Amino acid sequence: MDFTFDNEQNALREAVAGLLMRAYGGDQRRSVTREEPGFDEKTWAQLAEMGVLGLPFAEEDGGMGAGQAEVAIVATEIGRVLAPEPFVESVVLAGGLVAAVGTAEQRAAVLGPLAEGSSVLAAALAEPTARWTPSAAGVTATADGGSWTLTGVKEPVQHGARADVLVVSAAVDGGTRLFLVQGDATGLTRTGYRTHDVGRAARVVFDGTPAQLLGDSDADRTADVEQALARATVAYAHEAVGAMDTALTTTAEYLRTRKQFGVSLNKFQALTFRAADMYVTLELVRSTALWATMVLDAEGSTADDVVAAADRARLQTSRAGRHIGKEAIQLHGGIGVTAEYKVGHYTSRLTAIDHLLGDGDWARARLAGRVGSYDTVEAVP
């Protein structure tokens, strides 16, 4: 397999990296995340000007018609500097659902403003009483003539307090359908809060809230939600790769410059071996994430192939994030857990990514459940 990027993809990577480094290369992230909405609206608009926010959408919907490789490039650069902009949450997950299910009119009305940077989407899928499931139960939808209303609670909803439009899953007649809810809709209550990685989430309460059915059929959308979650999972894996890359680079630099007993720490063989193990772990998860991206883009990939690839990327990302985050802090010593030093913030973000759409143990259980469906192989004598 060829894991290298072409010239256009490298140009995209350099452009996004340059923009995000200017925005968050110093201490700007701390001041930006301290205030609402938790990310820089100016940087969000600049990403839109570069075409980043419309990358995965078709040109007729106001997008760029790019593939999953381009999404992976952007997610990696976001992770490299811990940029708080909701690219995966708004573009890949919520936008991906609209692109996959919405009518032509809905796609134009929702994805166009998102690609232009004038709108933020949020996917309201998680429920307090459920754990990482694509189906809805806690929010129900009721039809009244040609209109719909929603009742129930979604939490956590990433960037749900800021979102202009919510993409909501709701239970209908034993199945799951998707709805669009405007941020200023009546009967909608959003309570935002900071997460441990200084991101933003919200508790969203629907009380007879008007909603628009996403799509033009009454089909069960559970499979569509699972596909969107799988694609977002792979994007998060790339964001984690970017974060782990910076954590490793920062740790290696610290070992080269910090002295003890008159010599730099990289002269101690045991510490060098631990840093080398971090590098091996990083390269393994990087190749796994790239492979999963290729599965998403490959012709002939089935829905099961996409979900299985996402679970493999999820499991490897979980293991690698724990290993690299832990080692980065321990090799730095006490400074690694201080709020003033960035290594702890990278570990916090890696921990958050591990639990957003399903952790490593959950992915391993799902993969183990598929073992019986694979063809048997004759043992080599």
Rank of each mutant, 00 (worst) to 15 (best):
A58Y: 01
M64I: 05
A270F: 13
G242S: 04
E59R: 15
L357Y: 14
R366Q: 14
G208H: 08
L282R: 12
L53Q: 07
V110I: 15
V181F: 09
R364G: 06
L356Y: 11
G65I: 06
V92C: 13
P134S: 06
Y341Q: 14
A69P: 00
I353D: 02
P84S: 08
A122Y: 00
R258L: 12
S119K: 10
V71E: 06
A339N: 08
A320I: 08
A313L: 08
T43H: 02
D311Q: 13
A292R: 03
P84N: 05
V92I: 15
I353F: 08
E41D: 13
L114A: 11
T33D: 10
K42N: 14
S31V: 13
S118Q: 11
Q212D: 14
A237I: 02
D40W: 12
W291V: 07
T195D: 11
G95Y: 02
A235K: 02
A298G: 09
T195W: 02
L111T: 04
V307E: 09
G208F: 08
A363D: 09
T4W: 05
L114D: 07
R131D: 11
T4S: 15
T293N: 10
N10W: 10
A240K: 02
L213F: 02
Q316R: 13
F206T: 05
A66Q: 02
K154V: 03
A66F: 01
L19H: 07
L166D: 11
A201R: 01
V280Y: 12
V98I: 03
D375K: 09
T191W: 03
G152Y: 04
Q316M: 12
N7S: 15
V380M: 13
K342A: 07
E116V: 03
T347S: 13
G334R: 08
G360T: 07
P56L: 07
V32Y: 09
A75N: 01
S318Q: 04
P381E: 11
A365M: 10
G96L: 00
A72F: 05
L12C: 02
A365L: 10
L166W: 05
A308Y: 08
V337F: 06
W362I: 10
T76L: 14
R22E: 15
A69Y: 02
G344R: 00
G96M: 00
Y279N: 13
G208C: 10
H332I: 07
R200G: 11
E239Y: 00
F261L: 14
G360L: 07
G334L: 13
H323N: 12
E35M: 12
L111Y: 05
T176G: 04
E70G: 00
D6V: 09
Q227D: 15
R29I: 15
A185Q: 11
T33N: 10
G95P: 01
R190V: 13
A48H: 05
